[in-house]
Simulated assay, not measured.
Amino acid sequence: MLDETLPQDLSTGHPAAALSADPAPGLAHDPGTGHRRPPRREFKARGSFTERCAGCNLPVLNCLCPYRASAESEARVWLITHPLEHLKPTNTGRLIRDVLPATEVFTWYRTAPDERLLALLDDPRFAPFVIFPDDQPDYAERVVGMEAVGAAKRKDKVPVFILLDGTWRQARRIFRKSDYLDRLPVLPLATSRVTRYRLRKPASQAHLCTAEVAAELLRQSGDGEAAQVLDDYFDAFNVSYAASRRYEKLEAPTAAMRRLLARHGG
């Protein structure tokens, strides 16, 4: 749900593009919704001057576009993304939307909840679950297990995994400061999986990045094929980006890349 170093119990639109200037002085567009928002200081991270592919936002040295693949799943993923995550090319939330086109991305603002998100939370077709650790007693009565996802399916509901996409500190703030999430069940991710993410240093190997969390949730809830495609796409992203940081051109596709190519006859 959360961020690129999200605790394993849980971890955007497409990142890297700076907020576009609005014709009205002093305003800018939110990259997730298009709404006007107050401007922020220009974001300049290491590698901000790297030549990037317009399609995948990776350095052109190891473009990810040939490996992009889509999959279908019974469950859906909705991302509530901190505004700064949109600007980070290392954000993996966007990989989920590449693989699962039905993924929804909402930018979080404490005082301005996204109206589309609020409407979807009230839609009786969906059974949303907030992915978050069960480490605090004040919401213990809301904590459920993966069996609740199966129960939702048996009621012909579409299970939805709501991932809070940001740093761990940002994710906690989103969870605590979003009243509209208070009525939803909390689903902690129970897994022994360790992270394979190379682009940000986690506090622990048990802290999974956003895409890894989504893949593990899909796998545990029965969407095995979608989970495998997302895992492979994440691996392709991870390896490609890491090689580009070393200014190395990948000479041959990895096993995950070959599986992705095979999905569309590549």
Rank of each mutant, 00 (worst) to 15 (best):
L218S: 02
E225A: 08
K201G: 09
S178R: 03
Y180A: 11
H14C: 10
S70W: 03
G166T: 02
D3F: 02
E115V: 12
S221P: 07
E225N: 00
A227P: 10
R259V: 05
A16R: 14
E74S: 13
R169G: 08
R193K: 04
G150C: 04
R154G: 11
I80K: 10
K153C: 15
M146Y: 06
L10N: 14
Y67L: 12
L189Q: 02
I96M: 06
S70M: 09
S20K: 15
E104N: 14
S178W: 03
L189R: 03
Q205K: 15
D98I: 01
L6P: 12
E141W: 04
K153D: 11
R94V: 06
M1V: 12
A75Q: 02
L217N: 04
A227C: 07
T191C: 06
E115H: 10
D231F: 14
T254Q: 05
H264L: 09
W168A: 02
L163M: 07
E248A: 05
F132A: 01
P137C: 10
P188S: 07
A127R: 03
L181R: 06
L58Y: 10
Y139W: 00
L87Q: 15
A152N: 09
T254Y: 06
I80N: 13
D114A: 01
H86Q: 08
R37P: 00
E147L: 12
K88E: 14
F106S: 07
G224Q: 15
R125V: 04
M146C: 08
F43N: 12
E85W: 01
Y233I: 09
A24E: 09
A151W: 00
R40I: 13
L189F: 03
L64A: 07
F161H: 01
A21G: 03
V194D: 00
